[in-house]
């Protein structure tokens, strides 16, 4: 087979596969702008109409508090990221640079914690939150995720390559260990922070399991839970266009934003699999962890 033919064949295969990858999204977009009859006709290409689009989106927004879901999603995701970074950055620094007693034990505990998915401690956490009266609250949504072993690994890996001289200089200049983390390490680790933030945001925005467990009030629902509720409610029954409109509304911002910053996201996601060669020791430990669960 000639080089040219082979290239054409490869492109054909990839184009077909790519089409399947984006198909649900494309179709969702088309259906959200198409009239009901067009959708039910079974046509491959749906003719969009401005009127139908308006009708579908208006219906979705009026029957489901989509904006409220989105706001909840942003609040929860941002709160989780802030807590995760605030807890993981000092710990990553201590594990990378401070020779304290019990460091191996702490490290082992974090490896252990990293392996445990949310479904395992969910029952006792649920009972605890129920007794504390925190079901149906932001706290209940955020709390289980504030500790991220993955973040600690990532930061530890980044901080290990930070020059010791600069840390010594900072100590002589009167920095406390915490201000070293806040004023020097975190700004220097900005790429790692960004990569992790993006990764964490996607994981928590899309999570269905935990919101389903702790949330029952519609005004506290996160986007996936809200959409699932909208789908299950009688309101969307038969109104496929409106359901698709709701799906587009909660998915599109994320897809647009994260497709444009793919590189950062992939760096965060692939960090445990393809470690930076500069820091072999922590990288190898990171690769021994099952990683990207959102914790």
């Amino acid at each position: 087979m000639s080089e040219r033919l082979r290239s054409i064949a490869a492109n054909a295969v990839l184009a077909g596969a790519s089409l399947i990858m984006v198909l649900p999204f494309l179709w969702m977009a088309m259906a959200s702008m198409a009239p009901q009859g067009e959708i039910f006709s079974g046509a491959i290409f749906l003719k969009p109409s401005l009127q139908a689009a308006w009708g579908n989106y208006a219906f979705a927004f009026s029957r489901a508090p989509l904006l409220r879901y989105m706001a909840n999603g942003v609040i929860v995701c941002v709160a989780i990221i802030v807590c995760q970074v605030a807890i993981a950055a000092p710990a990553g620094y201590a594990l990378a640079k401070l020779p304290f007693r019990g460091r191996p034990v702490v490290f082992a505990a974090i490896v252990l914690g990293l392996m445990i998915p949310i479904q395992v401690p969910a029952i006792p956490l649920y009972i605890g939150l129920a007794y504390a009266g925190l079901l149906d609250t932001y706290t209940g949504l955020v709390l289980p995720f504030i500790i991220s072993g993955f973040a600690i690994f990532l930061f530890r890996q980044f901080f290990t390559s930070f020059p010791d001289d600069v840390i010594d200089a900072a100590r002589l200049d009167g920095f406390s260990e915490l201000s070293i983390v806040r004023r020097l390490m975190l700004p220097a680790a900005w790429p790692a922070v960004a990569a992790f933030a993006v990764f964490s945001f996607v994981a928590n925005w899309n999570d269905l399991y935990w919101p389903l467990v702790v949330i029952t009030r519609p005004e506290m629902m996160t986007p996936p839970l809200g959409l699932a509720a909208f789908r299950a409610s009688g309101d969307s029954a038969g109104n496929v266009g409106a359901l698709m409109a709701g799906g587009i509304v909660i998915t599109l911002p994320l897809v647009i934003v994260f497709s444009t910053i793919q590189k950062q996201f992939i760096r965060g996601m692939a960090a445990p699999a393809a470690p930076a060669p500069a820091a072999p020791a922590p990288a190898s430990q990171a690769s021994a962890s099952p990683a990207p669960s959102s914790r």
Partner: peptide
């Protein structure tokens, strides 16, 4: 006393400037 409270200044071979 904290290190920074002593009147000692240090210039490192690598300069050890704060990169950010």
């Amino acid at each position: 006393r904290r290190l920074g409270d002593r009147g000692v200044a240090f210039v490192f071979q690598t300069y050890a400037l704060y990169p950010n």
